[in-house]
Design a protein around this nucleic acid. Structure first.
Length: 888
RNA sequence: GGGCGAAUAGCUCAGCGGUUCAGAGCGCCUGCCUUACACGCAGGAUGUCGGGGGUUCGAAUCCCUCUUCGCCCACCA
């Protein structure tokens, strides 16, 4: 450590050094041998090429706080980091780079392209992990994984083969979500439904015999080029007679039949539905039931294919839509157009509208996997925070649909399936195959697996599965999964299913879903909106602790974190200021240790009561209460409460009061300096530990300077403070509370009467309660010092002009101010105060004269209310006496 | 179309086992460079706790309803 103890905390000067020291000391490494009550957190692996954004910042700060907390409590804490190869996203990045040079991946060919992606990943990939270090993330870097690592790839194949053997993986022709931009199939989850305001067109299809027409309603007129039927409900009287009749499809001049199908809702649209089996899932099912033809009318890029009339060929689907509508209009077959809002799927990577498309893909049968995963939730073995998220999980599990896992990409785990063109056999294999048993060469399936097909395995694949490793034995199942709600279904739910299927147990028992970081208009932060906050910029300018504190203090269970990208200073200053406050409090305590002090091996309570002042006992009690509050808050994931508790203790109690009032003792102007030093140091030490999970750097920087700290000891492994029964003292809290009230009252009077800051005043304390009297005697020096009081008078001061106040326990406070004050103003003030109290008295009397209340409310409640009334009455009497003496 | 959250000081939010609960931080106003800190100290103002109705001796706190935001799910073309 540098010896500089500057008046201003400089995070940039110490963060990197401290982080390296922790890492080099092996503090973040969890040993599988002799692991103690393991606490395991799987980091949601960021995309390998991504750059840290504030969402990552929030997610990883939360994980780090939890992990540091549990590690300090002595548990073997494993926070396992990794990166995701992110199939579509990463391939897109490299393809865009190629496009700039005027090339496509097809120009390069598969092998060269994949090589290129690897180059890109090796050159730039994983830098996000270094960025996590910059915010203080205490992950076990020795175990960092990449989803394309050999070990994880083995796990992927193992899982594919096992599921296939169980009949849970199959290949088939179905309507899937197709992204015409990424040129790949997507899962249902990857096609994000978004409300789109469009139109619904009513198109007339003439009957083949010219005897009339049927009107169909559609939101996608261009698909009519691929219609092979019109369907109506079998019981729909309007159309019953037409079932089986033929229609002549305009534009394509094809005859299509009218079929009856239960899937049709007679109440919607016209009750007659055009059927396009190749471009709509419902139509596909109808087509299967009625043996209809499927005509694919689009190319992979969603242009009109060679299967449509020449006039439409090559047109983009939306151009084709316009043209179809125009043609219908020209033919007099466009009945009407209505506005219509409906949910349309968008590619989650490039936001292009997905096209439902018939194609051959690989699927995982999900229902059997969902069963135990749902059961775990129903049993209470898997819990969600906030709780209501569990219902979303359950709903999804209950309505689960099969998972399309094949992607028409090149970057990813290639599907471990080989086809023989000789004998036609299909081989599913753990190892690469070259030749078929029949002697013919094999060719591997061209597709790769969905990126999530590797990430759903990480709770065990990252620990060495399918090998039975020590890590796996020690750290599976894990403990908590921390993430944003967005990937609940993509990742969390699937991990639970994989854990149940392959490990026989859920991978974690708690899912903590924190909010999303949004701007003040509640918009998600994103590059395209330009409303993002660069966490690394914040770290540079304000320090990692300020970033972390702001994120943690701003979050509460179940709500989003709102930050203002247009007011970075206002957003992060509080965190920076707090770090600086801490730094200066520490600077004061640590530089005032010269002179005798007490070794406090057993904690503050090791001091004998008779050598502690009221203030000492108070701060010790407050410290102890803070230990309880903070610990419970961390345990309950109420990180903002933990932050607030320690903030209050450090700033309001320790800095504002205790440090101020022990100054005379430290300077040798009052006895007990050794005890004050010991108490200040010890309570400060405790506070540093309590705050370390949230603000690791500044706490460590200060803790390293604590004298007597064992050589080579670091805060992350320094242990967690325990609540101490002997330290708790309600009596000290009450009594010192009265001292604070008294000081506050005098300060208020001083301010109200513009008494010069340097000028001392006298204070008369009148009919104090027993505790107040004792407290004021004990802390007379404190009162004199903090309220600038020259003399504490017991009873009457003999003067009549001055400021009055009444403390909560009824003690009167009179500050004689001689001619220096405005009598009329003080009379008014007293009058207002009396009126306020009288109102309270009146409503209290009413309450207590209410027979219903007195008889029905619990006795202790009634007793308390009576006490309140008595106190207020006393206060009124006191104030009226004062008013009388002022001659109001 | 289903399901679910949230509405409390100018801002972000606590408080929701009913009876000192109307609070915190930031912001704002006033006075202070008091030998740890002006990224500071002291003092202060601000809210019919979204509207309406109900239960109760008593409701931000429980129930109903309305309004406004937000989230999740959904093959009504």
């Amino acid at each position: 450590m540098s010896d500089a103890f500057a008046a201003q905390y400089d995070p940039a000067a110490i963060e990197a050094t401290l982080y390296a020291a922790w890492r080099d000391a092996g503090l973040f490494h969890a040993r599988a041998d002799g692991a103690v009550d393991p606490y395991v957190v799987m980091m949601p692996p960021p995309n390998v090429t991504s750059v840290l954004h504030v969402g990552h910042g929030l997610n990883n700060t939360v994980q780090d706080v939890l992990v540091r907390f549990e590690r300090m409590r002595g548990r073997t804490a494993l926070w396992l980091p990794g990166t995701d190869h992110a199939g579509i996203a990463t391939q897109n990045v490299v393809e865009r780079a190629l496009a700039k040079a005027g090339h496509t991946r097809f120009d390069l060919g598969r092998e060269a392209f994949v090589e290129k992606v690897w180059e890109h990943v090796k050159a730039t990939g994983g830098s996000i992990l270094g960025q996590l270090a910059a915010i203080g993330a205490s992950c076990d870097w020795d175990r960092t994984y990449f989803t394309l690592d050999p070990g994880l790839s083995t796990a992927v194949r193992e899982v594919f083969v096992r599921l296939h053997e169980k009949g849970l993986i199959y290949r088939g022709h179905y309507i899937i979500n197709w992204c015409p931009r990424c040129l790949t199939a997507l899962s249902n989850e990857e096609a994000e439904k978004e409300e789109v305001r469009g139109h619904i067109w009513h198109l007339r299809y003439p009957l083949a015999d010219g005897s009339g027409h049927v009107t169909v309603a559609t939101t996608r007129p261009e698909t009519m080029l691929g219609d092979t039927a019109v369907a109506v409900h079998p019981k729909d009287k309007r159309y019953r007679k037409l079932i089986g009749r033929k229609l002549r499809l305009p534009l394509v001049d094809r005859e299509v039949v009218i079929v009856a199908d239960d899937a049709i809702d007679p109440a919607f649209g016209t009750g007659a539905v055009k059927v396009t089996p190749a471009h709509d899932p419902t139509d596909f099912e109808i087509g299967k039931r009625h043996g209809l033809m499927s005509i694919d009318v689009m190319t992979p890029e969603a242009r009109m294919a060679a299967t449509v009339p020449e006039a439409f060929q090559g047109l983009d689907r939306f151009e084709a839509r316009k043209l179809v509508v125009r043609r219908f209009e020209e033919l007099g077959l466009l009945e009407k157009v209505e506005d219509h809002a409906h949910a349309v799927g968008h590619c989650y990577r490039c936001h292009t509208i997905v096209e439902p498309r018939l194609s051959e893909q690989w699927f995982v049968k999900m229902a059997p996997l969902a069963k135990p995963a749902l059961q775990a939730y129903r049993d209470g073995r898997l819990r969600f925070i906030p709780e209501h998220r569990g219902e979303e999980y359950a709903q999804w599990m209950e309505n689960i649909r099969d998972w399309c896992i094949s992607r028409q990409l090149w970057w990813g785990h290639r599907i471990p399936v080989w086809y023989c063109d000789g004998c036609g056999k299909t081989h599913v294999s753990r190892t690469d195959l070259v030749t078929c048993q029949c002697g013919a060469p094999l060719r591997q399936d061209e597709d790769v697996l969905d990126t999530w097909f590797s990430s759903w395995l990480v709770p065990f694949s990252s620990l060495g599965w399918p090998e039975q490793t020590k890590d796996l034995a020690a750290f599976y199942p894990g403990t908590v999964l921390v993430t944003a709600p967005e990937i609940l279904f993509f990742w969390v739910a699937r991990m639970v299913m994989a854990g149940c299927e392959f490990m026989g147990d859920i991978p974690f028992s708690t899912v903590y879903l924190h909010g999303t970081v949004r701007d003040t208009q509640h918009r998600k932060m994103s590059k395209s909106l330009g409303n993002g906050i660069d966490p690394l910029g914040v770290v540079q300018q304000y320090g990692a602790d300020a970033l972390r504190y702001t994120l943690v203090a701003g979050m509460s269970v179940g709500t989003d974190v709102i930050l203002d990208p247009n007011n970075i200073e206002g957003t992060f200053a509080a965190g920076r200021n707090f770090a600086n406050k801490l730094w200066n409090a520490g600077r004061f305590i640590l530089t005032n240790l010269e002179g005798p002090t007490r070794p406090l091996a057993g904690g503050p309570s090791a001091l004998r009561d008779d050598e502690l002042t009221l203030a000492d006992r108070w701060i010790i009690a407050r410290c102890d209460a803070t230990v309880r509050e903070a610990t419970e808050a961390y345990e309950r994931f109420r990180l903002n409460d933990a932050a607030a508790a320690v903030y209050r203790f450090l700033w309001s109690d320790l800095a504002d009061w205790y440090i101020e009032l022990i100054k005379p003792r430290l300077y040798g102007e009052a006895p007990g300096g050794d005890v004050a030093r010991a108490v200040a140091l010890k309570t400060f030490d405790v506070a540093l530990r309590l705050l370390h999970p949230i603000m690791p750097f500044v706490t460590e920087a200060l803790w390293q300077r604590i004298p007597g700290k064992p050589d080579g000891a670091w805060l992350p492994s320094a242990g967690w403070p325990r609540p101490d029964g002997r330290a708790a003292s309600p009596e000290a809290l009450r009594k010192f509370g009265l001292v604070q009230e008294l000081v506050g009252a005098v300060r208020t009077i001083r301010a109200e009467y513009d008494v010069q800051p340097g000028k001392a005043v006298r204070v008369a304390v009148q009919h104090p309660g027993a505790e107040a009297a004792a407290a004021f005697r004990d802390e007379a020096a404190t009162i004199r010092r903090l309220a600038k009081v020259s003399e504490l008078i017991w009873g009457e001061s003999g003067e009549s002009v001055g400021g009055y106040a009444v403390l909560g326990d009824g003690t009167g406070v009179f500050v004689p101010l001689g001619d220096a004050i405005d009598v009329a103003r003080e009379c008014g003030r007293l009058g207002a105060e009396i009126a306020r109290l009288q109102q309270l008295v009146a409503s209290q009397e009413k309450k207590l004269s209410n027979e219903q209340f007195v008889s029905r409310a619990p006795a202790d409640v009634v007793g308390k209310e009576r006490e309140k009334l008595a106190t207020w009455r006393d206060q009124v009497t006191t104030l009226q006496e004062k008013r009388g003496r002022l001659g109001c």
